[in-house]
Write a protein that binds this DNA or RNA. Structure first.
Lengths: 146, 146
DNA sequence: GCTTGACTTCAAGTTGACTTGAAGTTGCAT
DNA sequence: ATGCAACTTCAAGTCAACTTGAAGTCAAGC
């Protein structure tokens, strides 16, 4: 397995060297050698960084991301937890899709205020994370036209 | 249009009163009256809050969310920007779906390290935000088995 | 052999998004 | 009329995730 200097890793991954050091400090990644003073990393750290950025964009904290792998970078979560997280991600993906539909609708809809457009309201309810929130919206918006 | 006290709004929306005041301070929402000292909000602020929480979970900052609406809560972005954002959301939704597929795969796959499992690598590349990142992964991982 | 540039450490600073604390005010129930 | 919970303001505190600064080290090219 080839080793790569921190500068190379930074350029390849788009992650600042200061961030790489920070990630190492908090135990998220590991350098395995030095070239002089310079940290060197295994090439597959790049894969790890891709996973980290993915996890971040999915809303996981660095701590959560770190806890998903043990020190040999092998997944350290029980299956049930993994599929729970997968379910959660699926829900989030659907919410994003709903939000994107809303934006597209807003770009088209001629209603004076979208908060009063029935179709917009429907999309909004579809985008709500919980049943409770959907109900509240139902009551608060419909029939409260000034 | 009925007005609601901050406490009610907080309970209905699940957003802390301190957060509501903070949102107001930064101009994200508006109270329209007082009941004694107490802030009162229009009921449709609830809708706004649903949008805000949605936007947050999609990774927008409060500032970005604020900039999407003008002071009358009407969308203040040109159509092209709206559909760009929608596209971005769709991409993000697909990435999340890919990440969820990865998690499900990890729950099943018997490979010793997932970073070495070809199917996992394929999923990872599918999950990458940019073509550039995909290429880098391609080079860094494949054929570098220790 | 000297400069240069990319690194090093360590501490301190920054930003976004809130929360907390202290001290005061109000509406409502008893 | 009194007590109290739920508010008020304003300043300060917190937390995650980094970034910046100062002072030093190293190796590569001129």
């Amino acid at each position: 397995m080839n080793l790569i200097d921190i500068g190379i890793l930074s350029k390849a991954s788009g992650v600042a060297t200061s961030t790489l050091r920070y990630y190492e400090e908090i135990g998220l990644i590991r350098s395995v050698a030095r070239n002089g003073l310079r940290r060197q990393y295994r090439e597959d750290t790049l894969v790890q960084l891709a996973l980290i950025s993915l996890g971040k964009s999915a809303g996981f904290s660095l701590e959560e991301i770190g806890s998903m792998f043990d020190k040999d970078r092998k997944p350290s979560l029980p299956r049930s937890t993994l599929s729970e997280r997968a379910d959660e991600l699926d829900r989030q993906a659907r919410r994003l899709k709903a939000l994107s539909n809303m934006l597209r609708h807003v770009a088209e809809c001629p209603a004076p205020s979208h908060l009063e457009c029935p179709r917009f309201q429907k999309l909004l309810r579809a985008a709500c994370p919980t049943e409770a929130a959907r109900e509240v919206l139902q009551h608060s918006v419909i029939g409260s036209e000034a």
